[in-house]
Design a protein around this nucleic acid. Structure first.
Length: 551
RNA sequence: GGGCUCGUAGCUCAGCCAGGAUAGAGCGACGGCCUUCUAAGCCGUAGGUCGCGGGUUCAAAUCCCGCCGAGCCCGCCA
């Protein structure tokens, strides 16, 4: 809605000046929108910007719905919002559109987002979590913005690590009575230990790999992989993260795609052979040669990944990959190869790692925190907190709140940090249930729910003489569509998370000094907080976090 | 050594892409606010050479160059 006000300001300025200008939101006690256009013109005409601003303002005329006043402050032209009319329009719109408020128009474009894609050799750990949360939320955001989004989990069910896993399962079996992915990783870790000790197992792994690529152990390995995925999916389900499709890497070998693409590449000038087949990508600024086939003839992860990306390129308009920063080179290589093949280059969302205070995460060495354990710990801590604060609630209710608050807090913590910032994992920070995190947001939401429980939101309401707290609330929620656009177009998730926090912040302030029930403005305020509630819900939906009516 | 990313208050971060009017939050510290819609809240005080040095500009945390510091990558692993 705020964009309507912007549009009005932009249009009236366009009628007066012909150069490009930028609108900004002043921070302090200035207008609701301002432009520095007078400074730009002052330079061009060598005149005082204050005079120019006056001149521009005098030329602006017409009937405006949302502009109530225009003032020249030190050369900045400030536009003031007509809050009475704007608030009414906004609230009516939000009420009418409900959970569709802020939704973008259909773009008619198919987007594929690949995320999580953790190797099926063990449970998800804290590093995968960031990938999954960013990917899932981005999918929700782009869908809401109007794209046709499909999410895919690329299952790396081929290559050395899977051969090692197969060896582990052959030798040690899969423990019963344990969550499948956790049982699988035990065999995997043991096999890795053997490999370090005894060379004969290295040869064994090589043989499994060779046989597998020719299709020999297909069923055996698929069974192990699917078992592990069963566990991973269970974890993702608890996190409210869903993939539309699971795409198996090995399928690109078996269906002939990999060979087909290798043949195409063979006829390019980049293709080279010695013991191996590789691409020389120096023309793309990559010194490192990209090996496509080992000397024993087997393909590599990258080879198969190229085939996967060609498939995505052919079936979608926009390809988005969520990658850890350790995959930056791989991304660059992939980009180069896809250019050679004349296929769509993906947009890479690169995130930095979450590290443990004691060092790097390694599934192979069993040094990681499983997401399952993390979730349980979050819920446990949330439960303690809820129990402390809500002794009046019964056990079941407290457990229910703790479950949602614990998982939501974890997701929120990761979603709100911009991806290029590395995170050193710290229980105290992740599980901060005091202020400024999800509980703070949920608390604002619960406060709204509590008021709305006690009164109906009247259909009709008058709006007049808004105070600062009311204005702030109106303004912040009116920006939601704009925030969605920004978040979607920049492909970032933390914008939404931070915006949601801002709404909660503004609401808490409002709540603290303005009475809703029993006030003279009860009708208006009920409508206002109801609209706030809807916008908060819409935000939480984009983050895959369930709003809590009570905490 | 080369490539990429990050460096904003004691700590954790937003703002940087699309440069503008006194750089925003939270934690921690100190001081206030519960007979009224949940105090998981609100208000106030203290705390900043926006890593350092140049440049572009009327204007730089934001753009450009150099340097310093931290992280990641540079496998016939994935």
């Amino acid at each position: 809605m705020f964009e309507k006000f912007e549009e009005e300001v932009r249009n009236c300025l366009k009628n007066v000046v012909s150069i490009d200008f930028k609108l900004e939101e002043p921070k302090g006690k200035y207008g609701d929108l301002a432009t520095n256009i007078a400074f730009k013109l002052a330079k061009m005409y060598k005149k005082n910007p204050i005079e120019i601003a006056d001149e521009i303002i005098s030329k602006i005329k017409g009937d405006f719905r949302y502009i109530s006043d225009i003032k020249n402050i030190n050369g900045y032209i400030n536009f003031y919002l007509n809050y009475e009319v704007f608030s009414k329009d906004l609230i009516l719109k939000v009420k009418k559109e409900g959970n569709n408020f802020g939704r973008g128009e259909r773009k008619g474009k198919r987007v594929v987002i690949e995320h999580t894609s953790a190797n099926p050799d063990g449970p998800l750990h804290i590093g995968h979590l960031r990938n999954a949360i960013i990917g899932d939320s981005l999918a929700r955001i782009l869908r809401f913005y109007g794209y046709d989004v499909e999410t895919q989990y690329y299952v790396n069910d081929m290559g050395k690590q899977i051969a090692i896993l197969a060896l582990g399962v052959r030798l040690f079996g899969i423990k019963e009575g344990v969550k499948k992915d956790h049982a699988i990783v035990e065999a995997y870790i043991k096999a890795n230990e053997l490999l370090e000790k005894d060379n004969k197992y290295v040869e064994e792994v090589r043989r499994i790999m060779l046989e597998y690529e020719s299709g020999k152990n297909k069923e055996e390995i698929r069974r192990i992989v699917d078992l592990c995925l069963e566990g991973i999916r269970e974890t993702l389900k608890r996190l409210n993260i869903k993939h539309d499709k699971f795409i198996y890497e090995s399928d690109f070998v078996y269906n002939g795609d990999v060979d087909r693409i290798l043949n195409i590449l063979k006829n390019t000038k980049y293709y080279k052979e010695n013991d191996t087949c590789y691409l020389d990508l120096k023309d793309f600024g990559i010194d490192k040669e990209l090996v496509l086939k080992r000397s024993d003839g087997t393909t590599l992860y990258t080879t198969r990944d190229i085939a996967y990306h060609v498939y995505k390129s052919k079936n979608f308009d926009i390809v988005i990959d969520i990658f850890g920063s350790d995959h930056k080179l791989a991304a660059k290589q992939l980009e180069a190869v896809l250019k050679i093949l004349n296929e769509k280059v993906p947009e890479f969302i690169i995130y930095e790692f979450i590290t443990l205070p004691e060092g790097k995460i390694s599934t192979r060495k069993g040094r990681y925190i499983a997401v399952d354990d993390l979730i349980n710990e979050c819920i446990k801590r949330a439960y303690e907190e809820v129990s402390k604060r809500r002794k009046d609630l019964d056990e079941n209710k407290r457990r229910e709140i703790a479950e949602k608050l614990g998982i939501g807090s974890l997701k929120y913590y990761i979603a709100r940090t911009s991806p290029e910032r590395k995170i050193v994992f710290n229980w105290g920070e992740v599980l901060n249930f005091e202020r400024n995190s999800l509980p703070y947001i949920q608390y604002a939401y619960a406060r709204i729910c509590r008021i709305l429980e006690k009164a109906n939101v009247p259909e009709n309401f008058g709006v007049k003489d808004l105070n600062e707290n009311e204005k702030s609330l109106v303004k912040i929620i009116s920006k939601f569509p704009k925030v969605v656009k920004e978040s979607a177009e920049n492909r970032n998730v933390h914008t939404i998370a931070n915006y949601l926090l801002e709404i909660a912040d503004v609401f808490h302030r409002f709540y603290n000094s303005e009475r809703v029930l029993g006030s003279e403005k009860e009708d208006f305020r009920l409508n206002l907080i109801y609209a706030t509630k809807i916008v908060m819900e819409n935000c939480m939906n984009l983050l895959g976090i369930e709003p809590l009516e009570m905490l």
